[in-house]
Structure formats: structure tokens, C-alpha cells
Amino acid sequence: MIVLTINGQDRQIDAPDEMPLLWVLRDIVGLTGTKFGCGIAQCGACTVHLDGQPVRSCVLPVASAVGKKITTIEGIGATDIGKRVQQAWLGIEVVQCGYCQSGQIMSATALLAEKPSPTDADIDTAMSGNLCRCGTYVRIRAAIKQAATGQATLPQTIA
């Protein structure tokens, strides 16, 4: 038995040490907001925060998450920045199929926590590990800026 702190709650979990956190979250804890996209840290769909740092949970042995604060998409709205990012995502209408967006939001939130006013280069650095097959990148960039500045940067068609 190990104890994980997920979104502020302690949970007892029976899982082998090397089991990736992603599957502990999805298949044991039942938090399915964190997605599986590649399993080899290439797509970012499984991004969660470990003590505020964005990590790829698909390759993170659960043992290394013990004693750290795990935040998932289900819990990110409880933080100030997370809430702002979600609002911006809705405001800019970023999502399409939505499958990658949990990971995108987790990465964006971590970026803004570290750099409240990110430059384009900062956004590239923080976000290019998150693939979006629907191609929502233009709006992701805009939404991050909106979350950072608080100024609405609507898609050009939403006047």
C-alpha cells in the first residue's frame, strides 16, 4: 500500500511501484480526465503536476509520486491560475475533440505559475511537448496570452 496525495486528498493505493502514475489515476483511482495518448512521453496528453511541475504521468513510476502533491485536471480549477486558464480556454473556444486539452491546460497552468507573462518563446518551450491532432495550437497560444493578461483575445470570428 502506498499513499498518494491527489488534488489535496490522501488516497491509499495498492499498485506495484513501477506502475505509471497515469494508470493508477485512470484505472485504480478512477480519475479519467488525465488521458492516454502515446505512453512514451511524446504527446503530453497525460500531463499532471507533481509539486507544481508538469510531468508525463505515462512514464512516471507511481513510487516517485509518493510524498509529492499530485494535481490533475480534475483539481486544477481549484487553483487561481488553473481557473484562469480554464476560463481563457472557454473564452477563446480552444477545444475541438478535447482529448488533448487536459494535458494542454496542465502544461499551460504550470507555465503561467512559473512565468506570469510568458513570451512567445516561453509558450513554445512550455507547450510544444503537447500534441493536438485537431490542430488547436493557434488558439492555445491566444488563450495562454488571455489567461496571462486578463485581456480577452477572442478568436477573430467571435467579435
Binding site: 511524446q42 507533481l50 510531468v55 508525463r56 512514464v59 518551450t125 511537448g129
Partner: peptide
């Protein structure tokens, strides 16, 4: 960076 991390510390493994 997903695996090796920006700082090269390799958090994942």
C-alpha cells in the same frame, strides 16, 4: 523534454 526535462534531470526515470 517530456522525459529528460528542460533541466536535463530526467524526472521520469
Amino acid at each position: 523534454a517530456s522525459c529528460h526535462l528542460d533541466n536535463g534531470q530526467g524526472r521520469q526515470t
